[in-house]
C-alpha cells in the first residue's frame, strides 16, 4: 500500500455565476463549494455528510470532473487531474465511478440489463470480445447478489434495491479504484437499505475499493465510514475519525446534527436531551459573514460574526473550524 492518499482535494471552490440583464453581467455567484480540502486513503471510506445545499453532492461531481472547479486542485493517485484535457482524463474517468441515488433516470429502458452493464466496457475498451463481455456482465450480476439470468431482463422489471445493485455492477465493470456514492441508499425502503449497505462493505473488502460516501443520514454514515467530513454551506466544519466525531463532536453544528437524529429506542429517547438549533440553512448566494453557522449557533460570540474560522487540527486527526473549539 502506497503512502499517498488515493484522492487529495485541496481548497477547491465551485462557484456558479449568476447573470442578470441583456448583456448578461455577472451579478454574483452561488458558492456551492467554497474552499474544501480532504483526502481519502486507499481502501478507506470517507463519509461526506450535511444538509441540503451544503455542497456535498457538488463536491462529488467536482471530484469526478463533471463540474469545473473555480479554484483548488484535485489529485488522484498522485496526478493533478484538475485541468486535464478530456483525452488525458479518460483513464481516470474509468478509475473513478459514481453511484447515484437512482441511476436509471438517464439509461435506455430498451437495453437489457446485460447490455447496460456491458456498455461502459465497450466505451472504455475494457473487454473487446463480445462473448467475454457477456460472461463478465453475468459474473458482475452474481457479484452484486443478482441472478445471472437477469441479464436478459429490462430495467423496469426491477425493484429499487435491485436497480441499485445493477448500478453498482455497472460501476464495477470499469474495475474502478474509487466509488463516489451520492445518497445511494436514501431512496430505498428501510428493509432494503441494509442489504445495499452490506453489499458496499462486502465489495470493499473483496476488491479493496475506496469510497467517498455522500449522504444526509448520520446513522448510515457512521455505520459505513472510517472518517467523516461534516459540511455546512460549502465548507467543511469538522472532519474526524468515526469514533471521535460521533463520541466527541467539537463543532456546535456537528453537535446539533447529532442531537437532531432520533435513536430508535424510546427508553433512550426519553432521557436524551433534544437540543435543537433554531432556524434553517441560509442561502449559499449570500452566506453570513464570519462563521457561516453563527446565526444559528447557540455559542456564537462577536468574533464569530466577523472572522471566518479555519479548520484547525485538534488531535488524532480531528479538525474543527470553530473559534471556540
Amino acid at each position: 500500500m502506497s503512502e499517498t492518499p488515493l484522492l487529495e482535494v485541496d481548497n477547491i471552490k465551485v462557484h456558479f455565476p449568476i447573470y442578470k440583464g441583456v448583456i448578461a453581467r455577472q451579478v454574483g455567484a452561488v458558492k456551492a463549494v467554497d474552499g474544501v480540502s480532504f483526502s481519502v486513503n486507499r481502501g478507506e471510506t470517507l463519509g461526506l455528510v450535511g444538509e441540503s445545499g451544503c455542497g456535498k453532492s457538488t463536491t462529488g461531481l467536482a471530484v469526478l470532473r463533471m463540474l469545473s472547479t473555480t479554484a483548488g486542485t484535485i489529485r488522484f493517485d498522485g496526478t493533478d487531474i484538475t485541468h486535464l484535457s478530456r483525452a488525458a482524463l479518460r483513464p481516470f474517468r474509468r478509475r473513478i465511478q459514481m453511484i447515484y441515488q437512482d441511476p436509471f433516470g438517464a439509461l435506455d429502458p430498451r437495453m437489457t440489463v446485460g447490455q447496460l452493464i456491458a456498455e461502459p466496457m465497450i466505451v472504455h475498451n475494457i473487454e473487446p470480445n463480445r462473448a467475454a463481455r457477456d460472461t463478465r456482465a453475468r459474473d458482475l450480476l452474481s457479484m452484486v447478489g443478482l441472478r445471472q439470468d437477469m441479464a436478459e431482463r429490462y430495467i423496469h422489471e426491477f425493484s429499487g434495491g435491485q436497480r441499485q445493485r445493477i448500478g453498482i455492477a455497472r460501476a464495477l465493470a470499469m474495475q474502478p479504484d474509487l466509488l463516489i456514492c451520492d445518497e445511494p441508499v436514501s431512496a430505498l425502503d428501510v428493509s432494503i437499505q441494509a442489504q445495499i449497505v452490506n453489499l458496499f462493505q462486502d465489495l470493499q473488502a473483496r476488491f479493496g475499493l475506496t469510497y467517498l460516501f455522500i449522504a444526509h443520514d448520520l446513522a448510515v454514515i457512521r455505520h459505513i465510514s472510517d472518517r467523516i467530513a461534516v459540511m455546512y454551506l460549502g465548507r467543511i466544519v469538522e472532519i474526524a475519525g468515526r469514533e471521535a466525531l460521533y463520541d466527541h463532536p467539537k463543532h456546535p453544528y456537528t453537535q446539533a446534527l447529532l442531537a437532531a437524529v432520533a435513536i430508535p429506542d424510546p427508553d433512550i429517547e426519553a432521557t436524551r436531551p433534544h437540543i435543537t438549533v433554531t432556524g434553517e440553512v441560509p442561502s449559499a448566494l449570500n452566506p453570513p459573514p464570519g462563521c457561516r453557522f453563527h446565526p444559528r449557533c447557540p455559542l456564537a460570540i462577536d468574533r464569530c460574526r466577523t472572522e471566518e474560522p479555519q479548520l484547525r487540527d485538534m488531535s488524532n486527526g480531528q479538525s474543527v473550524a470553530c473559534h471556540l473549539a
Binding site: V190, S191, Q193, A194, V197, L218, A219, V220, R222, H223, R242, E243, Y246, L258, V261, I263, P264, D265, I268
Partner: peptide, 9 residues
C-alpha cells in the same frame, strides 16, 4: 436492520 447512532461500530 437499521444502523443506529449509538450502536457498537
Amino acid at each position: 436492520s437499521i444502523p443506529r447512532l449509538d450502536q457498537v461500530t
